[in-house]
Design a binder for these strands. Structure first.
Lengths: 104, 104
DNA sequence: TTCAATAGTCCCATACTTCCGAACTATTGA
DNA sequence: TCAATAGTTCGGAAGTATGGGACTATTGAA
């Protein structure tokens, strides 16, 4: 059974997206997720050094900023970056930030 | 007499720029400054509701992120957005964020 | 030179965040 | 039914932001 964890996502705001991506850990998570199309949050996206609760908190922040959408699939939560939605709201922004994140 | 307040500016990093601009107050300051070419920080850029010490702190953060350069001119400090430097490091980023800040 | 005014910075107390471990919830599979 | 797995929630410790007041530096006038 598939269900959205937070179906009613708030508006995507510039400050929200920027502060969500301003954290290196979250930027790295988003970078990891954008490659795949679906991914488990804990195992796949976050660095292993981080506590589970911290990872969960980062995902909450990303969700609340409208950067990712989480669907619950059985025991695991799958997070997808809302590329299309972000791009509709702020054209080019996400791609540009991720491009610069690549470069280091 | 003109002198730089912090001559040795650290490297401009993506996380630094993003978190500097993620704060709505700072984004507004940068927006205000980019219009003019030189501007006084307190009076010109910051919203009047903010305490002087808070404004000073925001400018310190912007300086440390490499977003602005502050020169001391007599009794006042003039802040300039380092558009060229930021653009050299992260082409298109600042302009894009400011464009979206207009709209949002 | 001295004094008041102005523009910022520094310091400190309070309020808010973030991070982590521990306890909890929900789902699956044996 | 029970253990394992994946996340969330809670509470405390550590760090960060805010604002008030004291301080510094420069100017311009008396």
């Amino acid at each position: 059974m598939v269900q959205f964890v937070h179906p009613a996502t708030k508006d995507i705001t510039l400050a929200g997206v920027l502060s969500a991506l301003a954290d290196p850990a979250r930027l790295q998570m988003v970078k990891a997720m954008i490659g795949q199309h679906d991914c488990m949050s804990c195992a796949a996206a976050a660095p292993c050094t981080m506590a589970k609760s911290t990872v969960s908190n980062h995902f909450r922040i990303l969700r609340e900023a409208g950067v990712v959408q989480t669907t619950k699939r059985g025991v695991e939560h799958r997070n997808v970056v809302r590329e299309a939605d972000i791009d509709a709201r702020f054209p080019g922004l996400l791609k540009l930030i991720l491009t610069h994140a690549e470069a280091g």
